[in-house]
Design a protein around this nucleic acid. Structure first.
Lengths: 334, 334
DNA sequence: TTGTAAGCGTTATCAG
DNA sequence: CTGATAACGCTTACAA
């Protein structure tokens, strides 16, 4: 790799001048030209390590996720990379599996790399990890979870609102016997809030579902199937509408309903969350509450960028909207 | 951030000694102990930039993908990160959208970061990008595509073999009227090879599908639907078995068949590629040729690691296997 | 076993 | 407008 010295030599100037040309300092047109030429012919490339060592600015954004292969994470990552690249910075990725030990290790690694900032997409943050994040020497943006004890700004979907809205929607279609397949309550991300919003909306309309009509599952298709089974096995008539906290669980529920000879939406209306790509392709096509995960990533990156530029440091919370997408799986009972 | 000098000061030794302790050089137990303590209490963290500047080794692996949000990419990325992290290295991610301009920019960025190596997962590599890769100062591993003009070792699935095998399988079940929904032929990744293997297997059994029974699509559900339509609109009786180069296109085909009143597998057997998670959940569940994308990532990372350690530099090609997963969508006609 | 000192490639400071 | 020089934090001969 050619160094700045090489460029300086070829252009007949000092390294200082080369540095100026590169970083937009003042230099005569003639010199600028010679330096540029030398850079081109030598294929010179600024050394990020040297620059970072000197200037403290690495132009690296550390991104910490639980699982790179999770579909929604994936969309978020897409949003992040596009914005980060647009700002001429680079993404350093850490996939931690949600293991606190790994999260701490990644933070140390980020610190060692002098990252310009971090986007943290953890879900259940252990206390010591939260401490480490709070102490981190560069700005951090928290994406997709409730804040907990983190002092950093956060970008979230309003899951409570989303749960509330879908309940209103179903009520508006005349449904009164409703069930909800929730995420585990200890999932800070979506567990408590979607369910709570859903139940509150029902309560405001004077509807109280029986206990067996609120079930829990771990997002898997199997869990959705099992939860639906428990709902149908409860006493009383089956619900006329079921909402699941994820499309994957809704798919499991769909399967269960079909196995039991119940038709969707003829007997039971069904709605999921996340609007995963296959939702529109199922038969019947699945209604869903869509959260724009990609936008989440973009907002996180944008916000972090502003923070690294020392603008807007007063933003403390960004709430993203959702869209209810009604498809064949939902019908009115009026 | 505490520096090495701080640690040295606190431990009452020179920075040289601290460096030795950290890098496993010889030091007396007493000193080692004091240094370790100082490191702990100061929360000292080696500066990656300084180390990289001095030693030329950044311990960063550059990973270049077309689209982070593509499901198979995502699995590969998972494999890569786990292995890279296991080796105490870090992943720097570049998502290029397949745009040559972006690919070149990412390579420059990687060069500037002095990455220890690159895993390149592009699909259609333009000549100048190939040149840049061939010239790259650190080792490169190419993942998931045929080599083209790249001089670096490559890790691939044998798509030809996979196409061949699934054809043999269908032939073995008695099918003689077969159709294939292929990826575009200019897709180096899977386009030509899956189709060619498929057709060759048929030829070896003396079967030649009519022209309209080979159609092309861009992997989308819609394209699969349209391709299936063209197949059914052709002259002669419909095929008894259809293979699609991706599960997504197979899903489109499934929908089309259903729209036309044809039953799967009663009238037509159907098989896809990739075994995406929903394949097993469709009704009927979809047969598929599974490629372990995660293993692809692991192998790439492992191979690259060996190359950076200067072992095994003679490996030039790693071929990964595939599994045929038969589910409800395929039946025998014997 | 331990320390001194030079240098990696860049930028900031201060002169000219 | 341009250049000499020091310094960023670390590793590595070379000495002691």
């Amino acid at each position: 790799m050619a160094t700045m010295k090489d460029v300086a030599g070829m252009a007949g100037v000092s390294t200082t001048t080369v540095s100026r040309v590169i970083n937009g300092g003042s230099a005569s047109p003639a010199v600028t030209r010679r330096v540029m030429d030398a850079i081109d012919t030598l294929g010179y490339q600024v050394s990020a390590s040297a620059r970072s060592l000197k200037g403290k600015r690495s132009n690296i954004v550390g991104v910490m996720v639980v699982d790179v292969s999770n579909p929604s994470t994936t969309q978020t990552l897409h949003g992040i990379t596009s914005v980060v690249h647009a700002h001429g910075m680079t993404v350093m990725l850490a996939s931690t599996g949600g293991v606190p030990q790994e999260e701490l290790a990644s933070l140390e690694m980020f610190a060692g790399q002098h990252v310009s900032g971090i986007i943290y997409m953890g879900t259940q943050t252990r206390e010591d990890v939260a401490d480490a994040l709070n102490r981190f020497p560069a700005p951090v943006v928290v994406g997709g979870q409730e804040r907990g004890s983190l002092r950093w700004p956060i970008v979230v979907f309003d899951n409570y609102d989303a749960g509330y809205d879908i309940a209103r929607e179903l009520l508006g279609l005349g449904h009164r016997r409703l069930a909800f397949i929730s995420a585990p309550l200890d999932d800070e991300h979506v567990g408590r809030f979607r369910l709570q919003g859903f139940l509150d909306a029902l309560a405001h309309s004077g509807v109280t579902p029986p206990d067996h009509c609120v079930q829990y599952g771990d997002f898997s298709v199997e869990a959705g199937h099992a939860a639906m089974q428990r709902i149908l096995d409860g006493s009383g008539p089956p619900p006329t509408a079921v909402a699941a906290a994820s499309d994957t669980m809704a798919i499991g529920a769909l399967r269960c309903l079909r196995d039991r000879g119940l038709r969707v939406p003829g007997d039971v209306s069904l709605v999921g969350f996340d609007d995963i790509p296959v939702a529109a392709r199922l038969i019947p096509s699945l209604s869903s509450v869509a959260l724009d995960e990609r936008e989440l990533g973009e907002m996180c990156a944008e916000l972090l960028h502003r923070m690294t530029q020392r603008e807007d440091t007063d933003v403390t919370r960004v709430v993203l909207g959702h869209r209810i997408i009604l498809r064949e799986s939902v019908t009115s009972v009026l």
